[in-house]
Design a binder for these strands. Structure first.
Length: 596
RNA sequence: GGUCCUGUAGCUCAACCGGAUAGAGCAACUGCCUUCUAAGCAGUAGGUUUCAGGUUCGAGUCCUGACAGGAUCACCA
């Protein structure tokens, strides 16, 4: 039985015997003891003073004494104000550590037989990826790993938005100004090339709009009347009508974009199990509209448009089908939800999409539940905040975006420069050094974007760039590399640090105990990260673990320690920390080096 | 205007879902490399948790109301 459970049950017993009062152990909770007090777990007495009919101090003393008598693993207790702090014995912690170190995959839960789909990335094919997409990709890819560790079978899906007016804009500009340019002829990556024409479209479009307005046309009308916009609209109609030339152009540009994306995904290390394309799914969902009408979930207005009335849930009416019978975003999202279920039989579905679409997903999920979909209760929107620049929001048309490819390159370059300045690549081959720079640069970038609570907006300052010291990816990677050096040395001197070598160790320093307590918490953190869909939980945990380990590392000697059992224990402790860092960083999809 | 989210140290972020004296990192300052990697460790300084009420043994956390920032409210995607 878990020690916290033992403690709470014994506390319940104490209440029974000392105060003749029944308490359900499940309602009792312990909290971690704050650093400045001694103990590992704390029981808060305030809520029970009416029962004990004594001062907090006296109550604490009584209960503490009882626990001490009845729990062999408890070594000591103290009462500060209304807080009963409990210290478990060194042998308990040592045993706990031994158990952990014997687990082959600490922090990995057994399969729960359930299937979850994580949809993320989902780019538009009219422009390259930027910093905001990076947050999305890292979140989605990481949460997929976390859910897998938590026992789910995970399908990673990418729903590519490859059609629509925005693509047509790039197509129009390319036809007018492209002169048959290609990635090969221009030397540009495919997605950047297409994005370039998207920007050109916008420039020309603005010019045309201004000209019309100068001629006295109202803004709204000018927006629609501008020549290029009309052409883009026509292009969209032709595309939907399967007009060969348009489709061919569309395919050509999209393929360039896909090649560009593939390259970016490769450097991000992101992969998918399933691709969906909106060009295949945009017509789905109309049958669901029919079904909803029959079930009375939707209703038809006089002009023939179909709506969902969600006012009883505090939402309002939402269009699901236009009067002309064509679909809207909501229609195809309903259809795609069914398709996902049909393809994979998932009971849980996570959509990694920015919080600007909170309302959309609230409505979508509500509709699907009303329709009685079997997967309805397993729908989650992992809503994340925007990445802001000091100048405010990123706007692709205004050129204030931080391009993903550029940023990756800069990060690797910064890592290269930093590492070389520190003179840390002795004995590295050229390839090993490059591999390390990539690992550190990407580690810094991923950690930077993942350490913040996904729900919150975050700020990225390009001037200050991303740090390599303090609460960063490289700090954790560094801790891992440090330990790897210790393990190499242990191997070299053939030191045996298996658990029976340190059984006789009784001292257990405070810093050592702190590290063990932290290690023992790992599994719980994985569960929390999975339930809250928050990689930040893991990131925060790893930083704390690394920090505590580094303190231990600075305070206590290992190889110059004379007692064999102490030496063995400290190496074993180090090895376990490295294992946990490796495992946790895997959940963040960050690689860790053996040397740096 | 309606709805939703956010507001914590100069800056970037935590705070285990109501508990102790609100913690880290960066930036600043002071120490520590002849012993396992100083991308590290120890320390100093930095706070009326936007404001005003309320709930209770106890509030950064819950409720109400201001204020500030953001998102959203299209027969757009």
């Amino acid at each position: 039985m878990d020690i916290q459970q033992q403690l709470t049950e014994t506390i319940a017993q104490a209440f029974q015997e000392l105060f003749d009062h029944h308490l359900d152990a499940k309602t009792l909770s312990l909290q971690a003891t704050r650093k400045e007090f001694s103990g590992e777990y704390t029981f808060v007495l305030f809520p029970y003073l009416k029962v004990t009919k004594a001062s907090p101090e006296a109550s604490g003393e009584k209960i503490g004494t009882y626990l001490l008598k009845n729990l062999p693993d408890l070594a000591d207790f103290n009462v500060v104000k209304g807080f009963l702090n409990l210290s478990l014995s060194p042998p308990y912690w040592l045993e706990r550590f031994r158990e952990l170190s014997l687990l082959p995959d600490h922090g990995t839960f057994p399969p729960n037989g359930k299937k979850v789909m994580v949809e993320f990335s989902s780019p538009n094919t009219n422009k390259p990826l930027h910093l905001g997409h990076l947050r999305n990709n890292f979140l989605g890819f990481s949460i997929a790993a976390i859910l897998e560790a938590y026992g789910y079978e995970v399908v990673k899906a990418n729903l590519v938005n490859d059609r629509g007016i925005h693509i047509c804009k790039s197509m129009v500009a390319y036809e007018k100004l492209g002169n048959g340019a290609s990635p090969e002829s221009s030397g540009m990556k495919g997605d950047h090339l297409v994005g370039h024409y998207y920007v050109l479209f916008d420039k020309e479009y603005k010019k045309q709009m201004q000209a019309l307005q100068a001629g006295g046309m109202p803004v709204e009308q000018a927006k629609k009347e501008a020549a290029w916009m009309k052409e883009a609209q026509e292009m969209l109609v032709k595309w939907e009508a399967n007009e060969p030339h348009t489709v061919e152009l569309w395919k050509k540009l999209n393929n360039w974009v896909y090649q560009g994306f593939e390259e970016t995904y490769r450097s991000l290390g992101v992969t998918f199990d399933q691709y969906y394309y909106e060009s295949d799914t945009y017509l789905l969902g109309k049958d669901i509209v029919r079904e909803g009408l029959e079930k009375g979930v939707f209703f038809k207005k006089e002009n023939g448009s179909v709506w969902a009335d969600l006012s009883s849930e505090g939402l309002d009416e939402k269009l699901v089908l236009r009067a002309d019978g064509t679909s809207v975003y909501m229609t195809q999202d309903m259809g795609t939800a069914d398709l996902k279920y049909k393809d994979h039989g998932i009971e849980k579905s996570v959509y990694v999409v920015g919080n600007e679409q909170d309302y959309h997903f609230e409505v979508l999920f509500s509709i699907l539940r009303k329709l009685g979909r079997p997967y309805g209760s397993g729908l989650y929107h992992l809503s994340y905040g925007m990445v802001d620049l000091p100048s405010g929001k990123m706007k692709s048309r205004e050129g204030t975006v931080v391009d993903a490819d550029d940023l990756i390159q800069e990060m690797v370059q910064t890592a290269r420069q930093h590492t070389q300045e520190l003179g840390k690549i002795e004995g590295f081959s050229e390839e090993e050094a490059e591999e390390l720079y990539r690992m550190l640069g990407m580690g810094a970038l991923k950690y930077f974007l993942l350490k913040v609570d996904p729900k919150k907006r975050m700020l990225f300052n390009p001037q200050e760039s991303i740090e390599f010291q303090g609460n960063t990816g490289p700090f954790i990677q560094y801790t891992h590399a440090r330990i790897a050096a210790i393990l190499r040395k242990a191997a070299q001197i053939e030191l045996d640090y298996s658990c029976d070598r340190y059984r006789s160790y009784t001292g257990l320093e405070a810093t050592e105990r702190v590290v063990i307590v932290q290690l023992a918490d790992y599994e719980k953190k994985v569960a929390m990260a999975a339930e809250e869909l928050s990689p930040a939980v893991i990131a925060q945990y790893l930083f704390d673990l690394a920090k505590e380990y580094n303190r231990f590392y600075a305070e206590l000697p290992i190889f110059s320690e004379t007692k064999a059992e102490v030496q063995a224990f400290r190496v074993a402790l180090s090895a376990e920390v490295a294992k946990t860092i490796g495992s946790g960083m895997k959940l963040l999809r960050i690689d860790v080096p053996q040397k740096m």
